[in-house]
Design a binder for these strands. Structure first.
Lengths: 172, 172
DNA sequence: GGAAGTCTCGCGGTTTTCGGACATGGGAGT
DNA sequence: ACTCCCATGTCCGAAAACCGCGAGACTTCC
């Protein structure tokens, strides 16, 4: 049950120290998805959910977006802050994702702090779930959220990458 | 769980011998919905389903579409054949709706014949269900399908209107 | 006998409902 | 220290209910 509102998205691939990432942008230069290449099928699933009817074609992302991603991995960890993102999702999820972008590189928050930040201090677990469903990894920094006791708890791209990203941001 | 792809639809009203009809068209002149004014809430519901995120504003439909509808009710029962329609719905539903448009004005089919026409001779009841969920009444002529024994069985806009439409088309 | 009405059951796609699971954390009990 | 329990929003899968039907068996009533 879907309607057909044709829209063509562009799928680019960028090499990084933690493996190739897939970068999906739309006609207006907004980022629609970012994920690691070894989880391509999951990303497709998310895309189908968030942009029903859209078709995805291989191509090159706008230069500014590509460059920002590359600069981030080279050490300029603030390079992603100016990028525009666009997602589907429920009201709640969008609120969570917006809150994520407010966490500066180099810092972390607990799931509890995240829940509190969006005004639903008791929806801790729900916030964690929404976090895990973030379709735009790295740019929407879901990796900056960790357990109250300091454990990394989980990451859709693999805990190793979460650790790497956090170290990378702290180093910078 | 919906994404936001803004699209504005136009809602027009046309007077007919069987009551006012609501006529929804999109920016490209395709018909997105048509229903009788006394079932407005149901139409809104269908629209929300088939065009999530779209907003509907009162206005005037493209002249060609309006004129076609008026000509149909004046006796030119083929006037609707050239109109473009656009719907959501499942694969199955769309197949059924396409098959409906192939039934010429003045003729009827049974639910069984309809099911057979789409290649699923045993999906009789499912075809009936899809028939009833047609969002574009009259133009997609779901009223031309009747029971195997000749009874009219049902019509979302009321059996009376179904009878009137069939008589009208036979007269012409 | 036979035409016409009733009842029963299976058909197949969609929708609704319901029960879990989940990238947590705080409090209470042992 | 460790275990158990609960709150919270969403997704997912399974199961059941729903129907704009129709064929076949069975009655009824001339």
């Amino acid at each position: 049950m879907r309607n057909a509102q044709p829209e063509t998205l562009t799928l680019d691939r960028v090499a990084t120290p933690v493996g190739e990432v897939l970068l999906v942008t739309d006609g207006e230069g907004a980022v629609r998805a970012l994920d690691f290449a070894d989880y391509e099928d999951r990303m497709s699933r998310l895309l189908r959910r968030h942009a029903p009817g859209a078709t995805v074609a291989d191509g090159r992302a706008p230069e500014g977006v590509r460059a920002a991603v590359e600069r981030y991995f080279s050490g300029d960890v603030r390079a992603l802050d100016g990028l525009t993102v666009r997602t589907g999702g429920t009201e709640f999820q969008r609120t969570v994702w917006k809150a994520l972008r407010a966490i500066p590189a180099g810092e972390t928050r607990t799931y509890g702090q995240l829940a509190a930040a969006i005004g639903s201090p008791r929806a801790v677990r729900a916030a964690g779930l929404a976090n895990g469903q973030n379709p735009i990894a790295v740019i929407v920094p879901c990796h900056r959220v960790i357990g109250a006791n300091g454990t990394l708890t989980g990451y859709a791209g693999g805990i190793e990458r979460k650790r790497w990203l956090l170290d990378h941001e702290r180093r910078a």
